[in-house]
Design a protein around this nucleic acid. Structure first.
Lengths: 137, 137
DNA sequence: TGTGCCACCTGTACCGATTACAGGTTCAAG
DNA sequence: CTTGAACCTGTAATCGGTACAGGTGGCACA
């Protein structure tokens, strides 16, 4: 039995599957963020699952606030001339720190929001705790 | 006794204090992301603590991945013609959801990174768990 | 085997957000 | 009063991402 083999995605399918704009996929290839895929005889790009995974990684990393250069740096660790394990670990550790910092920052964001919303009873009177949070002296 | 009153920050000082590029501050003013400050007789901008707080809020919100429009939406809640409390609460609640989603996403990011780094003993041999995480079949 | 149509191809223009630069003015220290 | 740093304005450049124009490839279906 053949499981689901050799996906052979078209650009549009890849876009739909990953949620990345089809034009952006071409752009990512141009700037080397993702590898250039195979082509059909007629020149159409054909992607496989690895592309899908990489692209998904890029998408979520970007939307989480990692800079393009950072994303590329992570991805390039696996490229040709694979980096030494120790080096990789250092970079990954550095990113882990960033991730944790981001989480901490977001929680800073969350706390006042939560407690403020609770106080904000929904009545239509002028004062509002959420507003105060933003513009307090 | 006068505590530290009426800061009276110059644009460069504000930039240094908040970590926002000085040109960007001018830009934010132009697009209405932050209010226009007072001016000296000679036309130099003078900022106060409220500007600093607002700008800091903008900076962290942006770097946390909130879109400019979203940041502006939050800030405008406190503007002239203050919104109804219920409305404010709804918007804030919506942002709270986003924040929580982001935290969850980041934790997804964190977990494999952490466990992978642990396995990655630092030895210089070819295979590396971090790399595998990125490019596994 | 045609033929119709959609998705794809390339190249380039556009957009929004941000940053940089040029040429002139103000501030404040001395 | 002088002088250099920091500011001012307007505008151009950069960057990440998207959109569009004009021209093929892929493929279902007659």
């Amino acid at each position: 039995m053949a499981p689901q083999r050799a996906s052979g995605l078209t650009r549009g399918e890849l876009a739909r599957r990953t949620g990345v704009n089809a034009e952006t996929i071409r752009y990512f290839e141009r700037i080397g963020m993702i590898p250039a895929p195979e082509r059909t005889a007629g020149g159409h790009r054909i992607y496989d699952d690895r592309h899908a995974r990489t692209l998904g990684f890029v998408r979520s990393a970007r939307s989480l606030g990692f800079a393009p250069g950072e994303v590329r740096a992570i991805l390039e660790l696996g490229g040709p001339g694979r980096a030494l394990c120790a080096e990789v670990r250092d970079i990954a550790a550095h990113h882990l720190e960033q991730v944790r910092a981001k989480i901490a920052d977001l929680m800073e964001f969350e706390r006042p929001l939560t407690s403020t919303i609770e106080q904000c009873s929904g009545r239509a009177d002028a004062e509002c705790a959420v507003i105060d949070m933003i513009e307090t002296p």
